[in-house]
Amino acid sequence: MDSACPHEGGPLELGDIEELGSGRFVLTCPWHDFEFSLDDGTSSSGLQNQVYEVKVCEGKVYVQTQNALSRIPTKEDEIMPCGVHVTVENSKCSNSENTLSFWAAKILCTPDPEEKANLTHHIRDLWNTGQITEVGQVHPPAQPSRKSNLRIVEPGRIKRGKGGTLASRIALLHSLANIEQWAIDLSWDIIVRFASTELPSGDPLPLEFFSDFVKVADDEAKHYKMLQKRLTDLDSDFGLLPVHNGLWQSAADTSHSLLARLAIVHMVHEARGLDVHAQTLNRFAAQGDEESVKVLEVIYTDEITHVAAGLKWFTHICAEEERDPLSTFHELVPLYFKGYLKPPFNTEGRQKAGMTEEWYLPLVKPTH
């Protein structure tokens, strides 16, 4: 079972196992007492946790998740004893699996972030070269998989410092790498979760929508690998420090609405990343850490295009539904985002993404 509670990422490995009778056992989260069946991961709260089936065959261990095997494809065809057939010969997979949604779910179920990033690059190539042509439909996992040794804590318990020491800069880079790991998953989740969305006309979402978010996922994978390399250069590694799952809460809250997902994840959270860029960059520059500065500059340039993608498809869908984009955005944000939007804003960066002040200034807390 996943070690992170799907509610707020509580450490299930610290929870208690209780017997309910008739051979039924549940694992209780130590944070908020949500219990999960050890048989199938269900909970009376309505939450669902990932449960993995493990088989040993000829000295090899195979792990099957609810949706796909957590492994990166190799150059050979392999028949897994659990019945999942993964074919990647000549960068192709079998017809039943040759869909973007299948691979999106597979990446979400891949716990190792390096493999997640590598598989993202691989699927980008297959999609861009026409070796994957169908979007398909696959039920997405309840939440992305994470390595079992990753220490997950509440967001408020993450200590980053202000970059004045090497340890503080490592903590900042580690935090950014965690954000990029989640950003990879958020990009694939919007693809697989909303693959069956129909516009009022009855038409499906344009293929351009999926191409845009494949690119976003690919950029986030690139960012993760750049940050991981920088951590390695500083004699650290991703996973050595605790992380939080706060970003996934927004994904869970907006899992029923594509407009809400675009508004909160791609037009609020990603735009906030533009706002804090200058301060973060200055902290590394003040310490002469030019290599980290170069990484942050690449991330910043790409993130502008990600905010633009969110805005593009938010306004497109609003037009299809004959909604006013601005008023719809101003209605959705208070519903799914806690609190007000906080200045200072990176007006220039947001402008480059197409997000003018009329989008966000009305959502700032009144001063009177």
Rank of each mutant, 00 (worst) to 15 (best):
Q228Y: 05
I123Q: 03
G136T: 06
I179A: 13
G288S: 08
S196G: 12
R151H: 14
E270D: 15
W127N: 05
G130C: 12
H174C: 07
D112T: 12
P242K: 05
R350Y: 03
D324V: 12
F284H: 08
W103Y: 08
I158N: 02
I191D: 01
G41I: 05
L262G: 00
S255L: 01
T165C: 04
F337T: 05
N149A: 02
T356Y: 10
P344S: 01
I17A: 04
W188P: 01
M226G: 01
D212M: 04
V293P: 00
L326A: 04
T87L: 08
Q143S: 11
F345W: 05
Q64E: 10
Y360L: 02
A105R: 07
D39T: 10
I264N: 08
A286I: 11
P344W: 07
L108W: 07
A195V: 10
L47A: 09
T356G: 04
A68S: 15
L332A: 03
K75Y: 12
M80D: 15
P140M: 12
P206L: 08
T120P: 00
T356R: 11
R350E: 03
P206A: 04
W188L: 11
Q66T: 04
E303C: 10
V153E: 14
V63K: 08
F238Q: 03
L281Y: 12
L259N: 08
F238N: 08
V214S: 05
M1L: 15
G46Q: 07
E303F: 09
H269Y: 09
L296E: 04
G10N: 04
T197Q: 14
W127C: 03
G9T: 02
A171W: 06
Y300L: 10
T315C: 15
P344D: 00
K162M: 14
V84K: 09
H368A: 09
I179P: 00
S255D: 12
Y360S: 02
V214P: 02
K352T: 09
E348P: 05
L173Q: 11
G354E: 11
E348K: 13
H256F: 05
D189P: 05
